[in-house]
Amino acid sequence: MRLNKATLFALYAVLELAEDRDRQIAAGDIAAKYGISLNHLAKVLRDLGRAGLVEAARGVGGGYRFVGNPKRVTLMDVIEIFEDIGAGKAAGDGQGPDTHLGQALHGVLAEIEDIARATLRSVTIETLLKHARSEPAAPAAAAADD
């Protein structure tokens, strides 16, 4: 399962903001930390705001904060704001499954996607943050052109 760039940015932002719900963080700080486009992130944050997951504070020292319930909001809840990865969205969906072998192959692909969706539905923001706190951070990956 490949997530859109916007979805990934939204997950980064939600996790970053939910880690300390009392802190407001500027979009620029999140963009710089993750090395992502500020313009793209700003649009994503607007969408998260409309979904009731983040709130913007204007003025000096303004930024965003997470206002959802981290024990209830799942990774899937965030993903579904940006894209539809529901059943029937298996890789290559609509591309040649009308043959006997094609159906068999798509059955296996659907199984993989089902497991992925069940996983995303069962991991809350709180659970993921707890997991991150309990695991030592891995060293940053080497640059692709190294």
Binding site: K71, T74, D114, I115, A118, T119, R121, S122, V123, T124, E126, T127, K130, H131, S134
Partner: peptide
């Protein structure tokens, strides 16, 4: 069960993974 989101979420919250 894969669709038992209630218990899946609970056990995930206890730190369990695949």
């Amino acid at each position: 069960r894969r669709d038992d989101n209630l218990n899946l979420s609970f056990f995930r919250s206890q730190g369990m993974m695949a």
